[in-house]
Design a protein around this nucleic acid. Structure first.
Lengths: 243, 243
DNA sequence: CGATAGTTTGATCTTCGTCAATGGGGGTGG
DNA sequence: CCACCCCCATTGACGAAGATCAAACTATCG
């Protein structure tokens, strides 16, 4: 999912075209024809959220579909001890809100912008209208809900792992898959999350993350560059930690 | 989901009718008319699995839909340290296999009978045929996949809880919801799982489960009756532990 | 260049896992 | 009908690993 639209020029274009690009970007609408795409686009309202701003809160009435157009959004709940448990990191092309469209009336989690984020919003009614006109979208929703199930199952798998090092390895590997930039022998990883968020993802404290990343660096598996960049030096060794 | 068909008489009927009852029992097929129901029934193959028998294995080719007709089935994976991580407990009326029907070719988890189990099996091809004839089933699949997502999200929530007592409380509460029999002031809970399985569900050891259940008993919150029965004495206190 | 939020490091405490021994209940065979 | 056995659960002692609290450090941005 390497963002064309995250370049500034294109995001300019996005504004001009009133969200058309974001509709094409979302896999849900990829199959639509030009005219239908226009119908979707006309119903979309674009919004910008700046870094750390909340997109919605747990308990909010769920009456919209949110399509991520640019940036990243973290979806999380608070657990018993008041810490965030991150469930998903959504990027460009992903969408959320669907679950509640057919069933729930309240959102079951919080959504917060990680970057500066541009989101296309579609009301529940409009969305259902679109589905009626294009029933094949329902199948795509099903598809994407399976993707979500898979993500959750592997998160469960990871959380059930006692060994914290294995959990971190798993987290890094999944980030590499999503956001990694392969070099000649190394892989550059621009972390979308702070240490604290990393910790919240795999259910440990930020101190533990620090220590474990430190020891992975000592072992020569990776190199930490500032707070937001990690260079993976030995992918195989990292995979070994996870398996 | 209180089982009519788990009574012996009815399960006799099930055999005679060649699976018709199991088709009606499954929410997927509830909307079907008599004639369509018959079409489904004719394609179903019933199988019995005895306690602890495996229904399928992770990595098996996924070419069937499994509808639970009687009994309970646990769905699990093995994690890095070789222990089971239980993902779902399926009972009568639930089904599994759907996820792989449209996408994967390999099952991503193991299924094992907890009780003596009766399962109706439907091939992938037959199922797709049925969906074509009854498109409204697709929507039900979507619905049930949302249910699954909810289950997983709350499992994640629970696993991310450091406090083991809270995790156990959460597990008990979810069992109460599914299998609890309310009395006058107490709630009787017939556990579907062994101590070891309970432990595998929330990612701790069986010894820890024993100790924590013991201390909940000491606090007067519940009473242990043998290995498979728990009487909940103070539901509010239990909920307090979870919140 | 300085302020500040985020990160790392250290020392101590708590909790759960591990290993080993004991206990009990249900089913089977005498 | 009882005794025995086996499986499962419980209990105890100990150690390891991560949480917590506190302090030092550093990246980043104005």
């Amino acid at each position: 999912m390497n963002s064309i639209c995250s370049q500034s020029t294109d995001s300019e274009a996005c504004k001009r075209c009133k969200g058309r690009y974001c509709a094409t970007k979302v896999s849900l609408f990829k199959s639509l024809e030009e005219s239908q795409l226009k119908a979707v686009t006309d119903r979309i309202v674009q919004k910008n959220y700046e870094k750390n701003q909340m997109v919605f809160f747990e308990g909010d009435k769920s009456d919209k579909l949110y399509l991520i157009n640019r940036g990243k959004v973290k979806i999380f709940k608070y657990n018993r001890d008041g810490k965030e448990q991150i469930l998903y990191i959504l990027s460009e092309g992903d969408f959320i809100g669907d679950i509640s469209l057919f069933k729930q009336v309240e959102l079951r989690f919080n959504a917060q912008a990680i970057d500066d984020v541009n989101i296309c919003e579609l009301t529940k009614d409009d969305f259902e209208e679109i589905i009626k006109e294009n029933p094949e979208i329902a199948l795509k929703i099903l598809q994407s809900s399976y993707d979500r199930i898979e993500k959750l199952e592997s998160l469960v798998q990871s959380l059930s792992n006692k060994d914290v090092e294995a959990r971190i390895a798993g987290l890094l590997l999944s980030f590499i898959k999503d956001f990694g930039v392969p070099g000649e022998s190394e892989i550059l990883l621009n972390l979308p999350l702070s240490r604290e968020d990393l910790a919240n993802y795999i259910g440990v404290t930020r101190e533990t993350i620090s220590r474990k990343l430190g020891s992975l660096q000592d072992e020569g598996i990776l190199r930490l560059e500032g707070n937001k960049r990690i260079v993976i030096l030995d992918l195989e060794a990292l995979e070994e930690k996870y398996i």
